[in-house]
Write a protein that binds this DNA or RNA. Structure first.
Lengths: 362, 362
DNA sequence: CTAATTTGTTCAAACGTTTGAACAATTCAA
DNA sequence: TTGAATTGTTCAAACGTTTGAACAAATTAG
């Protein structure tokens, strides 16, 4: 019953173009175009008239035409494994804010952690003529050729889930040092038999956390026990299973460093169920500072990755590259964001409860 | 030190166009174009040759050129108050999946709950020539003119935070019935003095929850006490404050229906601190089914809004409108998604703990 | 064997904008 | 007063693609 209207009279007006303005003012389209771009040779009078006419006609430049002519789309592609993970959602937020401030529009896509799908999505972005791409790799992506080719055509910045390439800028969290901080903290708080619920080691950030874990143990003179390292998918359920298997060991751990807050939470529920007190008898540190981790009981100590900063930094790197790219020679950047350990109750420590002095720390 | 390369030889090849293919094959661009679109008058031989050449040249159609010529950008704009809220992130996920399946690219933007910013972002989308817009309104948006004008030019679908307009399709959660379900449940579980930690009533979904709350009380013969209704920002802190003020009443409630899980969580912490047992003495139901709500102790009963479905439904509605729009007359749709109450421990009920019969319900 | 039809392609214009060159009119310098 | 410089505009081509019309060649019909 309804027709797409453009005014209350029921007539469908086409979108106004530069030509309509020109016609209305009795000048040529090129004069109008130059007026908009504030060309010095166009009279103030004309400029004003053009602006006014544009207003009246509700004119909006057609980015496709402009883009085609100028060879610039004003579009940036952002691709992540899944939009709804808070880590990625927050990173996207950071990237979007930075990019839109610079006048870019952001096209998003999800890889669903599937390499072929990722490729397909990137193809789409290329067709859309994105000027640059910000990406976090799908778990399944082991073949980086596509990204290598892509990065030879347009600027690419990888974040978090990256791969090493001498021509691509990356922004990563220093997962290694995050892990080290977590272990240092646990040791400091009096725990000594520290297990690690790890993510899959073929995913770079998870591998780095494993490396950091091992390294920190060595630095503290603790011998690494392979039984204390369990790789699993980063969710609560796997955290439960892994923790249960840890308690079947002849010598169970007295602390867990988990590669995600979900794993940590799973661990907590198992430990509590066994009647073991957290943090008095058992310490837990998670990773990622998920929203819920501050709200559960006990609140989970965790490593914050500054995901919003991650996104905005990646965006800034891309913008820089876009600006300089054609002129100067391009030197890929490698930004590393230092994560921060957030001390909460789950690892307050044996020390905390045994020595009043330490209590004042919190 | 690095130059943007296109091959290992160090020469910068321009992107291949239809003209390059034509030149290579000694035919005209139009023949190439027709070959791609599988035009019946182009010989199979030519089609094959074109496809092969395209492959070799790594040709990719320029969506800006195609779009300009065809008057279609293949772009859909999605604008939400904030990307990183899990509700919106999940809705975006749903929309993105549906839209990309249909070959559309998704441009996202955030309004930051600011009307002027929202307008600015939409302007940008219009310039980018989006073919349609999916939006959830900024809290501050009270003036809907912009959306009315917009919807007269391109299809618009509003979701969750909508306004009533006879020309715009909407997808909403039935917040009213969600609230009713929550109250019914609380009453059934033996609670009778039920307070409501509400969101701001000028935001439609929150208002509907308030209405549902009031309605359900009436239906259960419970008199509405204005002291039991507190409007606040939907976060943990405000939940704490509001709950504390409830306990200062001469007759405090024995249950709270909160308009968000964050509010509910704040309430829980206050109630527990007072030594009041949940759910034996006090029942709590939240809203939105945030990830953490299943993981805290006690797990929070909550109203799930199926936000992913919300997003995909909005996308589907938009696609339908895009497809039919020009041909048939457009009849705006009004989809309402029925939320689901998820029973968890926080409202297991006085009944549950007093009568063994009811225990089997869980 | 001629005319009509089919087949495969080219031609040319169009989408909306930008931009260097060209041009006419005005102003300035000498 | 003539030439040069400046000012304000128009011209025309270009960006990469699509598409109806036109056209030549090959095939079919009668």
């Amino acid at each position: 019953m309804f027709k797409r209207l453009n005014n209350s009279k029921g007539k469908v007006k086409k979108k106004a173009t530069i030509v309509d303005i020109a016609l209305k003012l009795g000048i040529t389209p090129s004069a109008v175009s130059k007026a908009f771009s504030n060309h010095p040779r166009i009279s103030e009078q004309t400029k004003e008239a053009v602006l006014k006419a544009a207003q009246q006609l509700d004119y909006r430049p057609n980015a496709m035409a402009t883009g085609l002519r100028k060879g610039k789309s004003g579009l940036i592609g952002v691709i992540v494994p899944a939009i709804h993970y808070s880590f990625f959602a927050t990173a996207i937020k950071g990237a979007e804010e930075t990019l839109s401030r610079e006048g870019y529009s952001v096209i998003i896509a999800q890889s669903k952690d599937d390499y072929n799908f990722e490729k397909k999505q990137l193809e789409g972005m290329m067709r859309a003529q994105v000027e640059g791409v910000i990406a976090s790799l799908a778990m399944g992506t082991q073949n980086f050729d596509f990204y290598k080719i892509l990065s030879s055509k347009i600027p690419v910045v990888l974040f978090d889930r990256t791969f090493e390439d001498e021509k691509i800028s990356t922004v990563t969290v220093d997962d290694f040092s995050g892990a080290v901080k977590a272990i240092d903290h646990l040791v400091q708080r009096g725990y000594s038999r520290i297990a690690h619920l790890a993510g899959y080691s073929h995913v770079l950030p998870f591998r780095k956390r494993i490396d950091g874990y091992k390294r920190a143990l060595i630095d503290h003179g603790i011998i690494f026990d392979p039984d204390y390292l369990i790789e699993c998918a980063p969710n609560t359920n796997e955290g439960i299973n892994a923790t249960e298997s840890l308690f079947k060991l002849s010598q169970p751990p007295d602390a867990i460093f988990a590669a995600s807050d979900y794993l940590a939470f799973g661990a907590i529920s198992v430990v509590q169920e066994k009647g073991i007190k957290i943090p008095e008898e058992f310490g837990i540190v998670g990773f990622s500072n998920e929203q819920f981790s501050s709200q559960v009981t006990p609140a989970i100590s965790t490593v914050d990755q500054f995901s919003e900063t991650l996104g905005s930094t990646a965006a800034q790197l891309l913008i820089d590259q876009l600006r300089d790219g054609k002129v100067k020679n391009f030197i890929p950047q490698r930004k590393v964001i230092s994560p921060q350990l957030i001390h909460r109750q789950s690892s307050a420590g044996k020390i905390y409860y045994s020595t009043p002095a330490a209590a004042t720390i919190l």
